[in-house]
Design a protein around this nucleic acid. Structure first.
Lengths: 137, 137
DNA sequence: TCCTCAAAGATAATAATTATTATTTAGGAA
DNA sequence: TTCCTAAATAATAATTATTATCTTTGAGGA
């Protein structure tokens, strides 16, 4: 189980520490794009002595090494996303819920659109949709 | 000149104060989606005694009254946008530059796409594109 | 002109994040 | 396996953006 995390860390050239494995596991386990606080709370169960600063530093190093990406909401807190494929986000306007939205057909549509509609003086690297609305459940 | 600001404030039922007019003017004048700090720095020239708290409070009331909207970036600072039509944003991955991107044809394309591709358990209110890349100039 | 309540100013408080520094430890070398 | 060193962690302090509090001021209606 944790072998996957250890292996991935090693591949990225990151030292395999219990804290890093725990944080990696926490993000994979926690849904809804956790905040640093969510992650800290979750990890405290098994690693009561983990330092808050460590969590922030590990998260930063994960983002740098493309194990995670950051997500911003209307509220002012940074959240983390462990899904690294090209995907979009559904934002609930009532709660702080964020869901991933993957749609290959949509990606192609957008890609084709911008192929024929260049933006002047701008080279596109990535297009992400922020889809705001309400969940029915 | 400032009559426009005074008139708009009045219409929204907001008391017309020199601070509010100055902040309104600053946002309209400053390009690149200013931060609160940018706005404060700009206003200090003519209103050296303006209070930082006042600026935040005025900005909040403007957002509430739909004179402004907030923009989220990867970085940790709130930025403000005085353009209120449905538009998208170009984010420079190298600098903190953000430009508005208006494209009615794109809006229609996306709207039509989601008309025929409903997302289950989700009612879309708004779709915004975060277009990341590099400016050529 | 006067009055009142909302707005502004000053300041303190908060909350998330970052920086600092001493201690510990992963992992390669002997 | 043990030792060594650079890197990682823990503890703590500092920072930064923002919000709250509370007193004073002034916009705008009576």
């Amino acid at each position: 189980m944790s072998d996957f995390y250890r292996k991935t860390l090693k591949e990225k050239g990151l030292k395999v520490t219990p804290q890093r494995v725990a944080i990696f596991e926490a993000i994979t386990h926690l849904k809804n794009h956790p905040t640093a606080e969510n992650i800290i709370a979750y990890i405290k169960k098994n690693h009561p002595n983990i330092s808050v600063g460590t969590v922030y530093k590990v998260l930063d190093s994960f983002v740098e090494n493309k194990l995670l990406s950051k997500v911003k909401t209307e509220k002012d807190i940074m959240r983390y996303d462990s899904v690294l494929t090209n995907h979009h986000h559904l934002y609930c306007t009532e709660t702080d819920r964020i869901e991933d939205y993957e749609d290959e057909q949509l990606n192609e549509l957008i890609e084709n659109y911008f192929k024929t509609h260049k933006i002047k003086n701008f080279n596109i690297q990535e297009v992400k949709l922020q889809i705001s609305g309400k969940f029915n459940n």
